[in-house]
């Protein structure tokens, strides 16, 4: 992790602190972390990365070195950026005295959780573009992901797009015009040097409708 890598959350905690807390099985309990939504969302993401890292090492014993540290570090850095509250995305309510919203950070964490739940997919980054602070304004969601070597990028992209659409429809009032999927990495048995040298970037954009 470089000095410029943004790993500090808005609440002041760093990804390193949270990783250490996770490694200690969240003991002793830290109320500052346990009552902070950003920290809890970051812990969810880090927990998945830690599990993934262990899985890759277990699968590749005898064949391959540890998963590329830079890859893991990039995902951790993205988690730190994305769990920040960000914008308040409005939710409908008839009463004008009411302000009901969901944070952009909560939505990005939701997207990450949905994507990471698909076998063979690891979410790299999630971005929401458009005037998401205005109800009914169209937005586009762009997700960067890594897929397991040997799996079909097209098939996984379709599954990912469908599940993200469903989750956003279920939990938010966003008018999602498109979910764009960028497969920019392959993981599992590919050496780090091969990932950067040979892996194609596959972009699947959905036509806004």
């Amino acid at each position: 992790m470089t000095e410029n890598t943004p790993t500090r959350l808005d609440c002041g905690k760093t990804i390193e602190e949270l990783s250490a807390y996770l490694a200690a099985d969240r003991l002793p309990p830290n109320p500052d972390i346990d009552t902070c939504p950003e920290c809890l969302s970051a812990l969810d993401g880090l927990d998945h990365v830690a599990q993934l890292s262990r899985d890759l090492i277990a699968r590749d014993i005898g064949r391959q070195s540890d998963p590329p540290e830079s890859w893991i570090t990039t995902i951790m850095s993205n988690i730190a950026q994305e769990v920040r509250s960000g914008r308040s995305l409005p939710l409908r309510h008839d009463n004008p005295e009411v302000t009901l919203s969901i944070t952009e950070g909560a939505v990005r964490a939701l997207v990450r959780s949905v994507g990471d739940g698909i076998d063979g997919v690891v979410i790299g980054r999630c971005r929401i573009d458009g005037d998401a602070e205005t109800l009914d304004a169209p937005v586009q969601v762009t997700i960067t992901a890594s897929i397991l070597w040997g799996r079909s990028p097209q098939d996984l992209s379709e599954v990912l797009r469908g599940r993200v659409h469903d989750a956003l429809r279920q939990h938010t009032d966003l008018r999602v015009a498109a979910v764009n999927i960028v497969i920019d990495d392959l993981h599992h048995i590919i050496a780090e040097s091969q990932i950067t040298a040979e892996s194609p970037i596959i972009t699947e954009s959905e036509d806004p409708t």
Binding site: N95, E97, T99, L100, G105, A106, H171
Partner: peptide, 12 residues
């Protein structure tokens, strides 16, 4: 007439 603000900060 009370003013109510609710923000969802996490979906878990």
């Amino acid at each position: 007439g009370a003013e109510v603000t609710v923000q969802i900060v996490r979906v878990s």
